[in-house]
C-alpha cells in the first residue's frame, strides 16, 4: 500500500488523508481504515502519547502552545490531536485551536489536527486512537491529545494515552473535592497553570492542595508517582520540569513493565470495542431485514402476546439467523 510508505516517510498530505480515512463514518472507509491500521501496527514508532484535559478557561491550548514550543525548540517532532465540540443543533463546528497555537502551528516539526467531536465524548469513536497510530508510524516523538472538558478523563486515560495530565488554574483547589476520586485515579500529572503575576501565590496554594489530595491516594508500589507541577504558559516557565517529569514517568513505568501493561490493556479494550461495534452493526442490519420488531409490537398492542414474551421471541428469532 502506497499510503503506508508515504506515512512512514512522514509526508504531511498522506498523514492528513489517512486521518480523514480513520475518522470517516462511511462503511467502505472503515474497511480501508482497518487495513491501513493493521499495516501501520507492523511499523511502530516510538512516540509517547500524552493526554491533556482540564476545565475551560485554564489555558489548555496556551499551555500546549508554550510547552510545544519548548519541545520543538529541542528538535522533538510533535503531533497534536485536538478535539473540538460540534454543535448539537446543527452538527457543524468551529475548530479554533490553532488560533491559540500560533507559533507551533508554523513549525515544520509539528502536525496539528483538529477533529470535531460529532457528539462523541471521549474521542474514541472519532478515530483518535487510529490517528495516534498514524502519527506514531510517521515518526512523531510526542503525540498530544487534547479534549474538551474534564468529563472524558477516564476514557482518554484508560484507552488512548500513556500519560494523562490534567491542567488546572489557580484557585481550583476548591473544586477538587467534587472530582477528587476521578482525578486521583486517572491523572498522572497535575499541571497548575497561570503561575505568574498576581496569581502566583494562589497557584502555589492550589498546587499544595493537589499535592495533599493525591497523598491520600493508595500508591501501588510499581507505578510511578503522580506529580503536581507549577507552570506559566504565558511566561513559558516550568516547561523543563514538565518534560523531565514525563520522561521520568515513562522511564519508571517502562522499567516496571507498567508502560507495556497499560498499552496491552488498551489493546484489549480496543479489540472488545471493535468486536462490539461489528456485532452491533450486523445485528442492526438483521433487525432491519427481519422486521419482527414491528410485527411483534403490533401483536403486543393488539393484546395477542405479553411484551416480555414478545421480546424473547424476537431475540430468539434474531439469534437463530
Amino acid at each position: 500500500m502506497q499510503l503506508v510508505e508515504k506515512i512512514v516517510k512522514g509526508e504531511r498530505a498522506a498523514i492528513a488523508k489517512a486521518i480523514t480515512l480513520v475518522e470517516s463514518s462511511k462503511e467502505n472507509d472503515k474497511k480501508e481504515s482497518r487495513k491501513l491500521i493493521s499495516e501501520l501496527l507492523n511499523k511502530p514508532g516510538k512516540s509517547i502519547r500524552i493526554g491533556f484535559s482540564g476545565p475551560p478557561g485554564v489555558g489548555k491550548s496556551t499551555f500546549i502552545e508554550s510547552f510545544g514550543r519548548y519541545l520543538v525548540e529541542k528538535n522533538y517532532k510533535l503531533g497534536i490531536l485536538a478535539i473540538d465540540p460540534s454543535s448539537q443543533i446543527t452538527g457543524g463546528s468551529i475548530l479554533g485551536d490553532k488560533t491559540r497555537m500560533i507559533e507551533i502551528s508554523k513549525n515544520p516539526n509539528t502536525f496539528i489536527r483538529s477533529t470535531p467531536s460529532r457528539g462523541s465524548l471521549g474521542g474514541i469513536s472519532l478515530g483518535t486512537r487510529e490517528a495516534s497510530i498514524i502519527l506514531d508510524a510517521a515518526g512523531y516523538d510526542f503525540i498530544f491529545i487534547e479534549t474538551v472538558g474534564v468529563g472524558q478523563s477516564e476514557t482518554m486515560a484508560t484507552n488512548l494515552v500513556d500519560i494523562f495530565s490534567l491542567i488546572v488554574g489557580p484557585g481550583s483547589g476548591d473544586e477538587l473535592q467534587g472530582i477528587k476520586k476521578g482525578i486521583t485515579e486517572y491523572a498522572d500529572i497535575f499541571i497548575v497553570n497561570k503561575n505568574d503575576g498576581d496569581l502566583k501565590s494562589e497557584a502555589s496554594k492550589t498546587a499544595s492542595d493537589y499535592k495533599s489530595a493525591i497523598s491520600y491516594y493508595k500508591k501501588s508500589s510499581d507505578v510511578a508517582d503522580k506529580e503536581v507541577l507549577l507552570v506559566s504558559a504565558i511566561e513559558q516557565t516550568g516547561m523543563e520540569k514538565v518534560i523531565e517529569t514525563i520522561q521520568n514517568i515513562v522511564l519508571q513505568n517502562k522499567k516496571n513493565k507498567n508502560f507495556d501493561e497499560r498499552r496491552a490493556k488498551q489493546f484489549t479494550y480496543w479489540i472488545e470495542e471493535e468486536v462490539r461495534e461489528i456485532i452491533q452493526f450486523s445485528i442492526q442490519n438483521k433487525i432491519k431485514e427481519d422486521g419482527s420488531i414491528s410485527k411483534f409490537s403490533q401483536k403486543v398492542m393488539d393484546g395477542e402476546i405479553q411484551m416480555f414474551d414478545a421480546i424473547e421471541a424476537i431475540t430468539q428469532n434474531l439469534q437463530n439467523k
Partner: peptide, 22 residues
C-alpha cells in the same frame, strides 16, 4: 466544520494548516 486560522498568517502557514486538517 469550520477551521479558523489565527490572524496575520503567511500563505505558507495557511497551506500547512489546510493540508494537515485535510
Amino acid at each position: 466544520d469550520v477551521d479558523m486560522g489565527p490572524l496575520f498568517q503567511s500563505p505558507k502557514d495557511v497551506a500547512k494548516d489546510a493540508i494537515e486538517n485535510d
